[in-house]
Amino acid sequence: MTGPMTTGATMTAAFLRLVAGAERLGLWGASLSLVTLVALGLTEIGWRAISGGGLGFAVEYTGYLTGLAFTLGLGWAVGQGGHIRLPFLLARLPEPAARRLDIALSLMGAGIAVAAALGLVAWTWTSAVEGARSYFASRTLLAIPQAPFSLGVAGLALSLAGRAVRLATGRTATGRP
């Protein structure tokens, strides 16, 4: 009788550890994107001052890195309670009802994020299959920046699902697994 419950609890804990790991990875990736964005800009300014010519790929890669800075941290921000909502109803409902509503909203949010992530994965997939390249001089394969970008949005879905599981298993909405 304790067998299935223990297995369930173990699986829940494992899933939440996976979510936490993905969130930390996203934080790292977004931080790295920000630092690289600064480094790329400084290199471009310096190189232009020294050689008179720019790097050539600075504008293009600034665009990709900006996109990654926006998306890679999406999941981690869920874990931090960083995304914005209007707690109009949630704050007025009694505790069990508020928790049930929050679970439903987290699942719904995860569903929306899954749709976005699936769309992006499909978009990246056709980029990869067609071998689509950027129209810039670098001819970068578009699937290369699009893949981590899509993963960032997938991370949002995962963290929202994790949030639903935390709430459903009596844990706090944010915090350690």
């Binding site: 999406l74 921000a77 949002l156």
Partner: peptide, 11 residues
């Protein structure tokens, strides 16, 4: 920064 940037990114 990542927290604020991600928050704005989603919106």
């Amino acid at each position: 920064a990542v927290r604020t940037v991600a928050m704005l990114g989603l919106i």
